[in-house]
Amino acid sequence: MNQEEIDKLLQDGLTLYGYGKTEDAVTLWRKVLELSPRNQQALDYIESAGYAAEPQSVAAGTKEEVPKPELKEAEFVNINYIRDLLKSRRYELAYEFLERLSEKNYPSNKQITSYCALVKAQLIKLYNHELFGFKKIPKLNVNEQDLIKYNLDRTDGYIVSMIDGYSTAEEIFQTINTIDRFETMKRFYKLTKLGIVGF
């Protein structure tokens, strides 16, 4: 088993998933299961994407052979809560919850880390869709002076200041290098939801 190859397949799957290519992503994660049938990350990704864990070609019974990691009661409750959030498509809330769990409560819990990566990919997919593939030029719908009425912070203020009326969202993301790309997308999405930014 080549761990490097498995990691690459897992990551490539997340990237594809983030771009909305769910089936392609699941194909890659199933490849992981062919190499390592007990790979919990791949199992979690496939399950969270709403697909069956076992590929068609794998004999029935494989799933049963894969032991689920034992979870402490609190963790079990948390995972179930996350699954509920995902089912109801409340991805942002799920991500925030997962981030808190992975940072504070269970930094080494692989299942939580896997869910975190997957929800992140799911959010990228959402942002990509809602922000028109980042290809459109965003515009400010609010006067600079009126911005103070909103509950923003200095990072939001900086992102808003980068909207110049001729750069696409993608071009703006490239220019913003002090903030993580995912964080920039997240904030950009928030600004559109608040009606501050439009296309």
Binding site: Q145, L147, D153, R154, G157, V160
Partner: peptide, 16 residues
């Protein structure tokens, strides 16, 4: 006019 220019422990600071 630079809203949310920076922030301190007391909150955001705007500059006008």
């Amino acid at each position: 006019s630079l809203p949310f220019l920076t922030e301190t422990s007391h909150g955001s600071i705007h500059y006008n």
